[in-house]
């Protein structure tokens, strides 16, 4: 019963191939910047799926970008543990003020998007946030200023 060696008629989706969908979406997102119609089509063609199937799956997961976002996606944690030690709103407001945008928005130069998330599994080193794939712990208004300054210069 090893599915890998089974032949599938063209109309049937090969389950092992479909299981690569999330990985394929990550790759497409990396190459195209976001998952627009072209990227979705490309993934669908590669895996023998319809664009609808691909988009429906992608839209379930918050890490897939179905719209263009800033070069740096800043995700601030608003979980209880972060909030208790001075995080959440004070941190969110501080980032928002520095970038001059509201949560959910992208700066006009396309550099930053600010998002709110809950729990990055860094509750012991709270307050926490993420910049793209990097976790930043023990955040304060001061080190946020440093971080944003550094990203601006990159």
């Amino acid at each position: 019963m090893i599915l890998e060696n089974k032949e599938y008629p063209p109309a049937v989706v090969n389950p092992r191939r479909r299981s690569r969908l999330l990985a394929a979406l990550y790759i497409a997102q990396e190459q195209y910047g976001w998952l627009g119609p072209d990227a979705i089509q490309r993934v669908a063609d590669r895996l023998g799926l319809t664009p609808g199937q691909v988009k429906s799956t992608a839209s379930f997961y918050t890490m897939f970008k179905l719209e263009p976002l800033g070069k740096y996606r800043i995700q601030v944690c608003e979980g209880l543990s972060c909030y208790l030690v001075g995080g959440a709103e004070p941190i969110i407001d501080h980032v928002a003020k520095r970038l001059n945008i509201k949560p959910g928005e992208t700066t006009p130069d396309g550099k930053f998007t600010l998002e709110i998330v809950q729990c990055l599994a860094a509750c012991g080193t709270a307050p926490a946030l993420r910049v793209n794939d990097e976790l930043c712990e023990n955040m304060t208004p001061e080190n946020i200023d440093e971080l944003i300054e550094q990203l601006r210069q990159e």
Binding site: S56, F60, Y61
Partner: peptide
């Protein structure tokens, strides 16, 4: 790819199969 429910074992299997 960012969905808490995928920690539930059967949702995790769905996700491993490349689905919602």
């Amino acid at each position: 790819a960012g969905a808490y429910i995928c920690g539930e074992e059967t949702a995790m299997l769905e996700s491993l199969e490349g689905k919602r």
